[in-house]
Design a binder for these strands. Sequence first.
DNA 1: CATGAATGAGCATTCATTCAT
DNA 2: TATGAATGAATGCTCATTCAT
Lengths: 188, 188, 188, 188
Amino acid sequence: MNTAKRAALIESSVQIVANRGFHGASMSLIAGLAGVAGGTIYVHFESKDHLMLETYRELERRCLVAVMKEYPAQGSIRQCFSHLAQGVIRHFLLFPEEFLFADQFLCSPYRKAVSPHYLPDAELSRILQFFREGTEKQLFKEMPPAMLLALACGPLIQVVRANAAGFLYLDDDRISRTVEASWEAVSV
Amino acid sequence: MNTAKRAALIESSVQIVANRGFHGASMSLIAGLAGVAGGTIYVHFESKDHLMLETYRELERRCLVAVMKEYPAQGSIRQCFSHLAQGVIRHFLLFPEEFLFADQFLCSPYRKAVSPHYLPDAELSRILQFFREGTEKQLFKEMPPAMLLALACGPLIQVVRANAAGFLYLDDDRISRTVEASWEAVSV
Amino acid sequence: MNTAKRAALIESSVQIVANRGFHGASMSLIAGLAGVAGGTIYVHFESKDHLMLETYRELERRCLVAVMKEYPAQGSIRQCFSHLAQGVIRHFLLFPEEFLFADQFLCSPYRKAVSPHYLPDAELSRILQFFREGTEKQLFKEMPPAMLLALACGPLIQVVRANAAGFLYLDDDRISRTVEASWEAVSV
Amino acid sequence: MNTAKRAALIESSVQIVANRGFHGASMSLIAGLAGVAGGTIYVHFESKDHLMLETYRELERRCLVAVMKEYPAQGSIRQCFSHLAQGVIRHFLLFPEEFLFADQFLCSPYRKAVSPHYLPDAELSRILQFFREGTEKQLFKEMPPAMLLALACGPLIQVVRANAAGFLYLDDDRISRTVEASWEAVSV
DNA sequence: CATGAATGAGCATTCATTCAT
DNA sequence: TATGAATGAATGCTCATTCAT
């Protein structure tokens, strides 16, 4: 069930949606780029909506893995925050099509298909817990964690988006300063 | 030929794209909601792409008008910043479908159809000038204005998006704190 | 009723059908080239079919006028024949779009709309009479006049068509030799 | 992929274009008569234009096969000429819809899609060679082969067209006399 | 599992025609 | 007479999905 073809179809979906949008991403185009026959998609995915959803979940998983790599669990809140924020930016700088897919997915009505939180539940609660902790230690502003999350992610996403759209070139220095801005948006 | 039908079609596009995405926004659906015959769209717009583009431009114009209303041109940078940021949030809180349309538009490949800046050129240079001034007065971080713009808009957009998606309820206090976070993201 | 606009519409039909065929000749295209509004066509013509039919009839009339100019009514059958054949060729060489319209018209099911003869009844009987006379004088083969007409017109039409399609360039000598061939096809 | 459906679609195109013209030959009509679903056409043909072109080429092929059957390659120029001319007439008498399709095709702007000669290049050069030979043996008039071709085909086509339109009934005798007329049009 | 021809509903768009001005 | 916005049926074509192989 987790064959190479399934993986190829997910890659193909990412590339095509990134470059042509959900409109313009036809099943036969996706199959073609993946090098499989049209009908094969339905061996691996129930429907187009399922393919999109599964693709999104895969990207979320990859982002999480990338971001959690070498996570300084024992470090300070600030260190953890920087690690996560840098991780997100660097991951999507490395895989801009993945960002473009995920960004479109979350802006579109497809968003309703994932849990009312952006993240897998287990991970989400870890993140929210992270903000709760920071708030308790009076490092973060007194706000619901969902709002802290939005404030913190805003600068990151917007900067990565500007980069993906070609408006901005992000070097190491700018990445650091984006993380800083993100921190300042939420820290007291 | 700026008839009522043209306006109705733009309203209809906003509603349908907001609720069903660009995929799922068929011309006949749009015509139906606008109360005109299918062919009438093509009296007013060259193609679906043009309709979407014109709709986006209309929303941009409306946002700008809303935001510039009672702009404290003589006030401090900080006052101007707050006015603009509050304006954006309040405008899109008032018209959530307009936000959902614009958000999807700018995430999707349609974005390539508008100038490489989100804003009409004249207005964009005013905004960039605003950041340049703030930077000169050493209120903002030493960065290219496009990056300051991204950092400042990030929290606003993300919070409005969370609100539109139903993850967050924004009251006056939270709006203020979002503006504050936005300011802190860019100020020294 | 016989206004300049009507004439312009007929000219426009000729040009557009000649260059784009009956498919590809839309009413708005024809109106546009004629420099009138779409609805105006229906002031002058009942329907598209009527416009095409009237245009055809106009071209037939013009051809007949051209061909009958300086007709040597007192001359020999041979002289009359040459005059007519040369006349047809030279007329359509001068107005290739008129030929292309008429040719397509007569090949297409529109042909059923004109009398089962290619020519206006009065003129047709004159032509048929001409062949009958020739046959009586034992100049033409013993055949029904309709068949003589087809045999005589065949070479003319085919050569004009080859010229209109750009396969052949017709100079004075070739015109004469075409008329000769046409004569030989029907003469004993 | 030369299935029965592809063949049925070509037959269907012939019938419908013959009876209703290119205008009036809608894809759904063609699909319906062929007994296939609308979308199936596009499995076998890229577009309407391609379907028409392929249909034309098929008819050309059939005509060539019919005409070349029992071709008296060792016979005299006159014998070959008669064989070919009779062959064309009899073939299209047998398949009048094929004639009506081909006739409309070659009169319409579709003609530009086939080589600037009516015939497949290999066959065309054989035909032109045939006329060159005849000219060398001083049987045909001193003319470019393309012009001899037009002069010879003219009577045939015109007579077949008159027959297809119902103006003329062609029996064996009239066929022979048409071939004769065709010969006389080109022979010295 | 994999295929790809076949489907038919649906799509964006066109177009002959109408009609209020 | 002339206009051109409006119409809605029809058009060529696409596409997610199915299924016999």
